[in-house]
Write a protein that binds this DNA or RNA. Structure first.
Lengths: 118, 118
DNA sequence: TTATCATATGAATAACAATTCATAAGATAT
DNA sequence: ATATCTTATGAATTGTTATTCATATGATAA
């Protein structure tokens, strides 16, 4: 079998170099991965779709998605730590909401992508 | 402490009902969660950023992201099974590429979201 | 055919994450 | 102050997932 010519080898190296150049830093990749992971569990994704309709307190979130209060609270913490949602206290309750438009975009793009089966 | 009035209680139920109405089906949530999970590992996210610059074969991907061939191959399978990337054979090589625009959107939105620290 | 290159896969281990239970903490009312 | 309502947290268990190694498969060339 033919070995690559020096030109081909250079082209390969160039492609790898280009791809490496597209790469965010290790820290950036780690942060993005953690945020995707935060929204990659069915129970947490359900919480987000519930919050997409508007701010809710923990009890209402729990009712909307099912499950128990403790589990929901743990999940809310993960979402909050990853800047996916935000919290504000209102008396005895804590109200949660989607943190910004990027998250809403993710949700709608994910839903659209469901149609793509190829 | 005051109990909720019937009106307040009805308002609460309405909010929960509304939130539940925003909810995709169980199957849809499961699929979306699985796809987010596919892109939520640093090594796989790196692969995607490499492919964002254009089609690459396995060896080049491996060089671009580091790690060994077997690990990369396992990760490519997960991405492919979740419709995040596609594969085409070209002689002895298999060329991988981002499957569609939704994925590219996800990557750029994720990168933008890095700037949001609140 | 055999040899070689490129990629994929199965099985085992090791790291990680989700859920549950029990309980703590924070806020308000009495 | 105490009681109650709401949410958060720590620890333990259970279930998942990533990575590695060894090897299989698939394609081309000699």
């Amino acid at each position: 079998m033919q070995k690559d010519t020096p030109e081909q080898r250079a082209a390969h190296e160039e492609r790898v170099r280009l791809a490496s150049g597209c790469m965010p830093t290790e820290d950036e990749v780690a942060t993005m991965a953690a945020r995707f992971k935060a929204i990659s569990e069915p129970s947490r994704l359900k919480i987000l779709f519930a919050l997409a309709c508007g701010e809710l307190c923990v009890e209402h979130i729990t009712q909307a998605v099912g499950g128990n209060q403790s589990a929901v609270s743990h999940q809310l913490k993960i979402l909050k730590d990853n800047k996916i949602i935000r919290a504000r206290r209102n008396g005895k309750q804590v109200m949660y909401s989607i943190s910004d438009g990027h998250v809403m975009t993710m949700l709608s793009v994910a839903k659209e992508h469901l149609g793509c089966n190829e």
